[in-house]
């Protein structure tokens, strides 16, 4: 009777999940444990067997303090004012590039001159990116940009020991928008004075 056959086929299709014929076998012959269930102390079908004692999922704690000593550095307020004065100009970059443009080189030459005129000042060079790459790629791109600036300052005679380098990738955007005007603002290397 085709009706019966049809039904049997429907039932079969539903049971054979994603083509896994063996699963159906597992269902109807439960006394053959799968490798996993054997190690998971599964009881044979229909038998009174061992009890699985369900353990609590482990409590999750907040990571308060690290094992090694960690402290965020505090900047004195006069440095904040020094930075606000804007003696050192930020450098900007083309999309997805870490190369120095000609206008950037001119600007950096001025920065180098100022630094050589203030030989005790220490700076941190921060690499930043727009949001149009994945976050972790941008971190590496920001690192390249910051290093390109550091190398150029070095070539102009600024002592590398005065220059720290960090990348923030897309994590600390200067402009919050999602358009080219914001992105062009965010593709930059920023100078932060960290010591006078």
């Amino acid at each position: 009777m085709s009706t019966a056959k049809q039904l049997a086929v429907l039932t079969l299709a539903a049971l054979v999940v994603a083509g896994a014929c063996s699963h159906r076998k597992t269902l109807v012959t439960p006394d053959v444990p799968t490798p996993e269930s054997a190690t998971a102390s599964s009881t044979a079908a229909g038998t009174e067997g061992a009890t699985t004692v369900v353990q609590a999922e482990p409590a999750i704690g907040s990571a308060g303090t690290p094992e090694a000593g960690v402290s965020a550095s505090d900047l004195p307020t006069d440095l904040v004012e020094l930075n606000r004065a804007g003696y050192l100009k930020d450098a900007f970059f083309d999309t997805n590039k870490a190369d120095l443009r000609d206008d950037t080189r001119e600007l950096l030459a001025a920065n180098a001159a100022w630094l050589k005129g203030h030989p005790t000042v220490k700076v941190q060079i921060e690499g930043h990116c727009d949001e149009r790459n994945t976050g972790e790629y941008n971190l590496a791109l920001g690192w390249r940009r910051a290093f390109a600036v550091k190398d150029y300052l070095g070539s102009l005679g600024v002592d590398a020991g005065r220059i720290g380098v960090i990348s923030y990738g897309e994590e600390k955007p200067f402009a919050q928008g999602h358009d080219e005007s914001a992105w062009s603002q965010n593709r930059r290397v920023h100078f932060a004075i960290t010591g006078r």
């Binding site: 109807v28 599964s42 009881t43 229909g46 067997g49 699985t52």
Partner: peptide, 20 residues
Amino acid sequence: WELTSGEIAYSRRFQAGNAL
């Protein structure tokens, strides 16, 4: 229960605190 065959496919006893 696998209802087409009428057989038991799986049987297990669990025990834990009410909170779990």
